[in-house]
């Protein structure tokens, strides 16, 4: 479990990183916290010939509130978000308790998690749930990609090989939102994860498809007193699931129902 050889490049600026990525092409891979990538490299499941280290770029980490918008730098660690006082964006901090364990959260980054695009990853769910925009910089400059269009498949995104995620923009507060998960062990990748935003009538699920899945919610409108159970049943019922080894569609659907219900409860009490 030793990685294959690669050439190491340290970027000092976003432009420098983009330059390296442009120059090195498909053989290059960006490393930030490395909490997923290095594990895959140790298994030799990933074997980039060039590794572009962006962790020494200044200014890519930090959380900024601008009016109703929250901007999170790509190199911000999960732990920094967990410890931050985010007020009506508190769902982000609370959700971080589901990300691996402390030593993973101290190194793993928001941008890295989004770029890795695991369909059960908390940041992917949160970005889709809260309709975040992913800010990427490439040779042609910056562009913003709506999270709903970013995740294309398992570990596949709309990011070009020469683009770097620099920031996540959350456009609106979500005071009544929550994320919850189920796995046999705490800290594992979720079997099913559910994130809800009661104010936006949105539910996003992980573990039910190749990307985070936005499920249909029944009524929208201003009534906040609707029983979450009906959401849970409706969402669970709307999914197309297949039996897989070790987990039937029926069980997965049951987990969805439970987790949506629990996420709704948590979201409505704001705890």
């Amino acid at each position: 479990m030793k990685p294959a050889a690669f050439e190491y490049h340290r970027a000092r600026s976003v432009a420098g990183a983009v330059g390296l990525l442009t120059e090195l092409g498909d053989d290059a891979k960006v490393v930030a916290g490395g909490q997923s990538l290095v594990a895959m490299m140790n298994f030799r499941l990933a074997r980039p010939e060039h590794l572009v280290d962006i962790t020494h770029i200044d200014g890519l980490s930090g959380i900024r509130r601008e009016g109703d918008t929250l901007r999170i730098g790509a190199l911000t660690t999960h732990r920094a978000v967990e410890k931050a006082e985010l007020g009506d964006f508190g769902v982000l901090s609370r959700a971080m308790r589901w990300v691996g364990h402390l030593p993973i959260r101290t190194r793993g980054t928001v941008g890295g998690s989004i770029a890795h695009a695991d369909a059960t990853a908390e940041w992917c769910l949160l970005a889709v749930l809260l309709e975040a925009r992913i800010v990427a910089e490439g040779p042609a400059g910056r562009r913003e990609i709506p999270a709903g269009e970013f995740f294309l498949g398992p570990f596949t995104t709309a990011l070009e090989p020469d683009e770097l995620i620099v920031e996540l923009v959350f456009p609106r507060p979500a005071p009544r939102a929550a994320l919850t998960e189920y796995a046999d062990r705490k800290g594992d990748f979720a079997l099913v994860a559910a994130a809800v935003d009661l104010d936006a009538d949105r539910v996003v699920l992980g573990g039910v498809g190749p990307t985070p899945v936005s499920a249909d919610c029944p009524s929208s409108g201003t009534s906040h007193s609707r029983p979450p159970v009906s959401w849970a049943d409706a969402v669970a019922g709307s999914l197309e699931l297949r039996d897989e080894p070790g987990i039937s569609a029926h069980y997965r659907r049951g987990l969805v129902r439970t987790l949506v219900e629990r996420a709704c409860e948590e979201a409505s009490c704001g705890c």
Binding site: F43, D184, R185, K186, G187, D188, F189
Partner: peptide, 13 residues
């Protein structure tokens, strides 16, 4: 082949 699948319990379990 990894600790992702071979689920050794932790202090939480």
């Amino acid at each position: 082949p990894s600790f992702m699948e071979y689920k050794v319990p932790t202090a939480m379990e």
